[in-house]
Design a protein around this nucleic acid. Sequence first.
DNA 1: CATTTGACTTTTTTAGTTATAAAGTCAAAA
DNA 2: TTTTGACTTTATAACTAAAAAAGTCAAATG
Lengths: 202, 202
Amino acid sequence: MDNGKSDDVFLSILDSAKNRFCRYGLKKTTMTEIARDIGLSKASLYYYFPNKEELFKEVVKEVYRTLLNEFEGLLSSSVPAEDLLHGYLEKRLIYFREFVHLSALSLESINSLKPVYARLFENFRKKEIRLVGEILAKGIAAQDFQNLDVAYFSDLFIAIFQGLRHNVIVKKDTVNITETEYSLLRKQYESAFNMFMKGIKK
Amino acid sequence: MDNGKSDDVFLSILDSAKNRFCRYGLKKTTMTEIARDIGLSKASLYYYFPNKEELFKEVVKEVYRTLLNEFEGLLSSSVPAEDLLHGYLEKRLIYFREFVHLSALSLESINSLKPVYARLFENFRKKEIRLVGEILAKGIAAQDFQNLDVAYFSDLFIAIFQGLRHNVIVKKDTVNITETEYSLLRKQYESAFNMFMKGIKK
DNA sequence: CATTTGACTTTTTTAGTTATAAAGTCAAAA
DNA sequence: TTTTGACTTTATAACTAAAAAAGTCAAATG
């Protein structure tokens, strides 16, 4: 590792933390639990991470990084822009189901979420927008899409689907998604996607 | 009034309550304040309303009733279905700005909103869906729209715009909407509407 | 020398308590 | 019929003590 610390331990901490944070959220996960998971003492965690918040941020970043990498992977393939967008949505949906707790965290902000996390999410959102923007630009270059305002439409695209996701979380008291809700969301994604396509295709 | 009580007082209580609930929300409004507004003692309120919760529900219902009436008014006019939908969105947007606190209440449910209110909102949503459904049916009958699944598409329509509204509330800690946010939302409404139209028109 | 730890301090949460404010009642008055 | 002051009950806020979790560090381990 960069700073000369064991990769193995570092990664196993990150892994246990990811599992717990994703299942129970930030507050309901303790450092002691994470430590126990990997058979270390709590003090050891502090050898690798300065504090809980940094560990959490690292987990979120890691999850985002993975997702963004998958997105990038999509982008490099030479399929039509429409399929890229569709592929992006598919991955976004799967990610949503797996990491609802991280997504729901952005909703906690209503009460009082640390601006630190707000910035994390905002960062990710910006990268998503840029990515969608690239896809849109690709579609325009290939004469598939109209010559539209890329910045605005990628923002709108993200907003529509984020909104649909919010609807799912908001009406619930617990952050657990049933199969029914998930498949309805997927259907809405599909319809909204088709409309969006009709709206921007040549 | 139905039960033989003064209309005047009843309505002025409702009015003061509406103003306070809309500005400060349910919890930050006290019965004493409402009473003071209209120069009565708190005890008098209980002559007209059994309790605070019923008063609040009455206010919400009243607001909804007004809005739904305006919607109905739209429906009876003989303009094309597309214009009806557009008019509906316009009113919905204005209503949103004016009654954010009532809308935001649905978001409070993340913590633990009384199922009573959840039912209120769900009721209203159903009526909205039915209304949009009627407009869609009208458009289909007039051969303007494709022969689509009315129930599903009216639900989708409502979901998309509700989602966009949620986005606005969710990223804030206070429930106050700036002019910038509002006009961005309006722009998104406009774009999403155009796409939806392209998606369902013949 | 990198890594781990137990034993420690500090900070945050929780549970329980009290004080205060608001909700809600009612017999009497206007 | 409507209003009210004086009341009781219930909910909220402010405070506290106890418990739990976060975070530190000198010493131990290998």
